[in-house]
């Protein structure tokens, strides 16, 4: 009797596994036309300065798939931490029969998650994406150095977060997605503009600068298939 139940459960899981299609979102950092490598120096156009990006981490949350304006799938895993040093892809198990034309997700954590206390998995504060001196997640973290930055060791640090009105930083993103895979370019030459690096090389608290910078990050994203 027990064996029969076990066999049924195993085959059912296997069947569902077969029925699922793998959808994948990946992120590729770019500097101009090159794929950006963390820690490598790149020349900044129209200047004699150079730049190096060391850390890129951000939250992608509440991913959903849409067909002709109707939501057909939403990911059961709500929060994904992308760390370009170690992992740049998110795999989704989407039921086979579902077809879609659009993907929607958020950059950053929702405001309720910011008030729930200690969380596990990708939301664990040990990943360095939670502020210590003030409550709230860092939704996007970009760190590096450039001779343009008049800071100690020429470092720039963008810790972009904030969940309270009027400085909420969570951004909604919608891209067309017809295939199983979408690769999203992150053009850092557009995000880290000359003026920004000069004037505000350090943004490490919620506020208007955090909002401006995270919006620029969002707007720079370019989907390719």
């Amino acid at each position: 009797m027990r064996y029969v139940v076990a066999i049924i459960i195993i085959s059912l899981t296997f069947y569902l596994e077969l029925m699922a299609q793998q959808a994948q979102i990946s992120f590729t950092p770019k500097w101009s036309n090159e794929t950006l490598i963390l820690g490598k120096y790149y020349p900044i156009s129209n200047s004699n300065d150079s730049i190096r990006v060391d850390v890129v981490k951000f939250y992608i949350t509440n991913i959903s798939l849409w067909k002709q304006g109707n939501q057909v799938y939403s990911s059961p895993v709500e929060h994904h931490l992308i760390n370009l040093e170690t992992n740049n892809t998110i795999d989704l198990k989407v039921p086979q029969q579902i077809s879609f034309d659009t993907i929607q997700f958020f950059i950053g954590t929702d405001s309720i998650t910011n008030t729930l206390g200690a969380m596990s998995g990708d939301l664990d504060a040990m990943h360095g994406m939670y502020w210590a001196w003030q409550s709230g997640y860092i939704n996007v973290k970009i760190e590096g150095a450039s001779s343009i930055c008049k800071t100690r060791k020429n470092l720039f640090q963008y810790h972009l977060g904030g969940y309270l009105s009027p400085n909420q930083t969570r951004q909604q993103v919608t891209f067309a997605m017809a295939n199983q895979h979408i690769n999203i370019f992150i053009p850092f030459d557009e995000i880290l503009q000359l003026q920004t690096l000069q004037n505000t090389p350090e943004v490490m608290s919620p506020g208007t600068q955090a909002v401006i910078n995270i919006q620029r990050f969002k707007q720079a994203l370019k989907p390719t298939e």
């Binding site: 206390g117 504060a125 040990m126 360095g128 210590a132 001196w133």
Partner: peptide, 27 residues
């Protein structure tokens, strides 16, 4: 500054003039 008891300990752990540490290294 802190909105939940769970997250309070992070503040003194990370403050450079208190414990000067970070959670990742403590773990």
């Amino acid at each position: 500054a802190i909105n939940h008891l769970d997250m309070q300990a992070l503040a003194p752990i990370a403050h450079p003039k208190e414990m000067g540490e970070n959670l990742t290294d403590v773990v």
